[in-house]
Computed example of a mutant assay.
Amino acid sequence: MSLLDSQGWPVRGEAGQKVVAFGGGHGLSATLKALRHLTHQLTAVVTVADDGGSSGRLREEMGVLPPGDLRMALASLCDDSEWGLTWRDLMQLRFKTGGPLTDHALGNLLITGLWQMFDDPVVGLDWVGRLLQAHGQVMPMSSVPVDIEADVIFEGETRVVRGQSEVATTGHRITDVRLLPEHPPVPSAVIEATAEAEWVVLGPGSWYTSVLPHLLVEDLHRALVTTAAHRALVLNLAPQSGETDGFSPADHVRVVHSYAPDFKLDIVIADPTAVDDVDDLVEACELLGARLLLRQVRTGSGLPVHDPLRLAAAFRDAFDGYLGEVGESEAWLS
């Protein structure tokens, strides 16, 4: 771990541990905003299944990876200087023209242009990171776009729903989910970062469309299972309407285990206000070999949104615990 100041935060200039965070959308953004308080050796691996909005239009028209979630991850890592924050805001700006550019995010267009220039998604994203003076690197889960396909129960029958935007809003119980193509290629840099990590983090986020996809890609699954890194899972603060209606925190953990029984965790982080049955959640965590770390990570507003500083403190406790600073399991359930 890096040296800490009097308030327990890393001293500026200290690199910190190598951490790779997996996910997409607002959930990954929350994780990155928290982790950047603890380390500068931070890599984000982002799902590439988005098929809606600006990203979906660019994907369909140009055959590129959907850039939106990648843009959000980069914005979360931007430098806090005037330069970084200005470019972050410009990257997030959406056009309101009433014409073909309406609702396109400027950052999506910039990323797509760099991909055309360099013909390498990782290199193009690195150039955007340099522009934002990002504290970390952002990479796609796959070098080709993927589609999410799910079996759902509708009026007692199984139906197939295809596309991230459709699966995320199905409103029916999902019984199975898969990716198309079945074996998308993973950038070598993603495999290397996972192998070299000291910690890998999954969640929070849309469970079936942002978190699970990383475990459904064969090469990435293997990398996550075989890495020597410690592994943490951050649970959502509430079920996601349309995708995980009625799910308990333990149900989320059991879904991970059902799709990747060989994937073991060290820590599961949950907010106590989101857990009705702690014993059930502890049992689910044990399926993955994990200890439960209960910490207040919700914003003060009470909304199901993670607070970056509170989540950072939870990560710090988790990381320090595996350096021997937390011993008995009871200390984690507080």
Rank of each mutant, 00 (worst) to 15 (best):
R94V: 07
W83V: 10
A105M: 07
N108W: 11
L101I: 08
L106I: 11
E82G: 05
G84A: 04
Q92T: 10
W87T: 06
N108G: 04
L110V: 14
W87L: 15
L106W: 09
T86P: 00
L90D: 05
T97I: 13
L85P: 01
M91E: 11
D103P: 00
C78G: 00
D79A: 13
T86W: 04
K96T: 14
D80Y: 02
P100I: 06
T86E: 08
E82M: 14
F95V: 14
N108D: 10
F95T: 08
D79T: 10
L85R: 15
L93C: 03
G98N: 04
L90R: 13
D80T: 12
G99C: 03
F95E: 06
G98R: 01
D103H: 09
G84F: 07
P100Q: 12
L101T: 15
A105T: 05
T102D: 15
L110M: 12
L93F: 14
L93W: 11
F95N: 02
M91W: 11
W87F: 14
G107I: 05
T102P: 00
D80V: 00
G99L: 09
H104F: 02
F95L: 15
Q92N: 13
C78A: 12
G107S: 05
T86M: 11
G98W: 04
D103S: 11
L101A: 14
G84V: 11
K96I: 15
L101P: 03
C78F: 01
G107P: 05
T102G: 04
D89A: 12
A105L: 04
D103E: 12
L101E: 14
R88M: 03
L110N: 04
G99V: 07
D80W: 01
D89S: 11
L101K: 02
Q92P: 00
L109S: 09
T102L: 12
T102M: 13
R94M: 07
N108R: 09
T102S: 14
W87H: 13
W83C: 00
S81R: 06
D80I: 00
G84D: 12
K96S: 14
L106P: 00
K96D: 09
N108P: 08
E82Q: 09
C78M: 06
W87Y: 15
H104D: 04
L110C: 01
P100C: 03
M91R: 12
D80G: 11
D103F: 11
L109C: 07
